[in-house]
Nucleic acid binder design. Sequence first.
DNA 1: CCAGCAGCCTGACAGC
DNA 2: TGCTGTCAGGCTGCTG
Length: 274
Amino acid sequence: MPELPEVETVRRGLNRLVKGATIASIDVYWPKIINNDLDSFKSRLAGQTIEKIDRRGKYLLFRFTGGLTMVSHLRMEGKYNVVPANTSRTKHTHVVFHLTDDRDLWYNDTRKFGRMTLVPTGEESTVGGLNKIGPEPVADQLTVAYMTAIFAKSKKMIKPLLLDQSKIAGIGNIYADEVLWMSKIHPMRPANLLTADEIATLHQNIIDEMAMAIKGHGTTVHSFSTAFGEAGQFQNQLHVYGREGEPCERCGTLIEKIKVAQRGTHFCPHEQRL
DNA sequence: CCAGCAGCCTGACAGC
DNA sequence: TGCTGTCAGGCTGCTG
């Protein structure tokens, strides 16, 4: 569930299902997922109530009574589920939060890449990538002036720059390809060579695409059958991601897939020129 | 500063 | 069928 629209969909699902719930106890089956001392993580959360779940970029912020925040990053495959108490866990259930209302909140993660960190509320900006995270991709926080300034300073290729969470929060591999196609910009173009018109177009497309994807409840690439984010419909509205070999919707040229900065990258070689 | 690459993990899929 | 290599929506840390 990785990019911002998917994480936002999970956040909304969690607020609907477990806001106000109280943790009775916690079982952890893959300790590396917890960045804190395990016993302290469990004992500090026992008895705490979930006030709400916030989000910053791709990070979920569970706000607890008692002034605690649990920062949770899903990385590639992390998922939350709510199940009846004592449901037998699956091979990919690595953390179980037992709630006091006869339900369990599961954290499932096939590849075990996700991480959780418990900190005093207000200190979440010390956690991992949150200490240097860029503005959210919404109109009142991400401005054309800001993008113009950071692009002018960088000769890096535009795609890896869009994926850099310290520059703009929340964009991942799917939406980076999508917004570059919409903006007719080659993914390998050095950022400092974008024109003012291209930056303005890209800025608008980033904001519109994120909003549209949230409205569509995110993108579901693999067909899983559980959890909150999986009602995602936005995969039906992708223009280039996963469409290599298919004709570009605008010009008919076949979409190509290449590697850019070690990431699979889809683009139209006719319209997206270097 | 940057680019490149290994590492973290498991599962799905293509090709032999 | 089984084996091998590659790939996957992310991020960190190391190297040159």
